[in-house]
């Protein structure tokens, strides 16, 4: 195997690298999130059709985009851990699942609450929202399967298989839900699609999408550090870490 792959695979190296990346990435992410929200909430003009309720787009769309991307990250980490038997990829997959589930919940909640002012009902079976709900079930399936196994090594492998099966099914689910929605509702406007969006509204959205991607990376790295400690608690480098009592 290529030496860098092996170096990447060693837990202490990954633990240190994750810590280093987080030290500068976490502040930038939080800063980007705050500016994006303030910009989207207070400084962009309100939309002529929906009034101010469209401002929810600045958290709904980024959360939805990153939640979907998160599932692919989890599935690919699972594939790497299955094919090349790399423990670190297994840790990455285990860390990605709860973060993805949380972001999917955010996308669902904001999508539902957005439906109330625009369509008058708390839950609308729009194509996007329904696919997002199914994605949440897929995430919860992976998390539940991981908890069901006692042998954590086998749990990682089983979740890798399940997330790969899920990855193959996601395009099918999205296409069939879109088609199902158009069959019953007629091709009404996709209220979450940002096709003709005014540039002044577009820039905060792009900033928020970037901020959510960075947030996903930070949460993933944080979870991996916690997971690494738990899995490697009997090794020397963890004991050494403790004796140095470096608790940053």
């Amino acid at each position: 195997m290529w030496p860098i792959f092996h170096k990447f695979g060693s837990p202490p190296w990954l633990y240190a690298i994750a810590g280093a990346i987080l030290r500068w990435l976490l502040p930038i992410t939080l800063l980007a999130l705050v500016t994006g929200m303030v910009w989207g909430l207070l400084f962009t003009p309100s939309e002529n059709v929906q009034g101010n309720s469209y401002r929810i787009i600045y958290i709904h769309v980024p959360a939805a985009v990153v939640a979907l991307a998160g599932y692919y990250v989890m599935a690919l980490a699972g594939a790497v851990s299955l094919i090349w038997r790399m423990k670190m990829a297994d840790v990455a997959m285990k860390a990605a699942a709860p973060v993805g589930a949380a972001l999917t919940f955010v996308a669902l909640f904001t999508g539902a609450i957005w439906g109330k002012p625009t369509w008058g009902t708390w839950w609308v079976w729009d194509a996007r929202i329904t696919s997002m709900l199914i994605l949440l079930f897929l995430y919860l399936g992976v998390v539940a399967l991981y908890e069901a196994f006692d042998n954590k090594e086998a749990a990682g492998k089983a979740c890798a298989v399940l997330s790969l099966v899920g990855m193959v099914n996601i395009p099918i689910i999205y296409k069939s839900v879109d088609w199902w929605y158009s069959l019953h509702q007629g091709a009404s406007i996709k209220f979450t699609g940002e096709t003709s969006i005014h540039p002044s509204m577009l820039y905060p959205l792009l900033l928020m999408i970037a901020a959510f991607y960075a947030l996903f990376t930070c949460a993933l790295l944080l979870n991996m550090r916690a997971e690494l400690l738990q899995r490697e608690q009997r090794t020397q480098w963890v004991q050494k870490l403790l004796s140095k009592d470096v608790v940053n």
């Binding site: 976490l26 939080l30 999130l33 929200m37 909430l41 101010n52 309720s53 401002r55 929810i56 958290i59 709904h60 959360a63 709860p98 973060v99 949380a102 972001l103 919940f105 955010v106 909640f109 904001t110 609450i113 957005w114 109330k116 002012p117 947030l215 930070c218 949460a219 944080l222």
Partner: peptide, 18 residues
């Protein structure tokens, strides 16, 4: 009400995730 509730829930979840 809707916009601020949505943003506050998002902020809570972001805090939780981090």
């Amino acid at each position: 009400f809707y916009v601020w509730t949505a943003y506050s829930v998002t902020i809570v979840m972001i805090a939780l995730v981090v």
